[in-house]
Amino acid sequence: MSLAEFQRRMAADLMAPMSVIPDAGYVKPNDRLSSAERLDIYHRQYWYRVIDSMYEDFPGLCAVIGQRAFDRLIEAYLAEHPSQSFTMRDLGSRLEAWLRGNPHYAGRRPEFALDMVRLEWAHVVAFDGPSKDALGPEDLLEPNPEMRLGLQPYISLLDCHYPVDEIRIKVNATLDEHGDASNASTGREHRTALRNAGRRKPKDVHIAVHRWDLTVYYRRLAREELCLLAALRDGATLAEAIDRAFESSPMPIGEIPQSLAAWFNAWSALGWLCRP
């Protein structure tokens, strides 16, 4: 067996679902452990490691669907999409697309779970994603209709059906409060607190996930504000973006200039705008 064949075989065994017991004939037994038991150390370590990593990045999803469903979902997702990156930071990069095709893993309210996945992946991107030089107020003194503006690449714009930003903040607070669950009692409290944090009724919200002073924040936006930013990010001119943002808006026309001024001031202060 060549090195490549050996490694393909062992990798397939390690990445097999946890319920599978691989044929470990290529592993030497010792006086304490059989071949299968020795291989099983690596098999379990693989799954514990990737599930822990996914839990670190998607605690809100776990709160929304529950720990057992979360474990099942992650195992199914990674069985289909094992890591293709040298960093575990990217493990969840395909989760949203996968979950759209496999909504039965997302509990009774798949839309809720999907909203949370989008928010939590956006959080990962906002934490360490690239940035460009921000445009300051002086760059926006003389806007013209044909001007094109870019949006910082670490910012995600989310149109959600559940207030997942509030839930994730509550989940974070719960995790901070309970810390490491060191015994059965605190473990139960911890799980209950998380489940309570994940219970919420539907509500349409528009969120920008961004960072300020190296910390990730969720900023609620008006629907028109989100449309405008999305249009600018997608390459529209300033005039086209404003048209798109307000084409079906109930906002009185007289209030639009004031809103635009306030939004551009805020975006500029937050460093959101850059050259396309």
Partner: peptide
């Protein structure tokens, strides 16, 4: 070793101690 065909285990897996390896 720890990756095969672009898939990563994120583990530090022991080598088969061969001359080829």
């Amino acid at each position: 070793w720890g990756s095969v065909d672009g898939r990563y285990s994120h583990d530090l897996l022991p080598m088969p101690y061969t001359f080829e390896a």
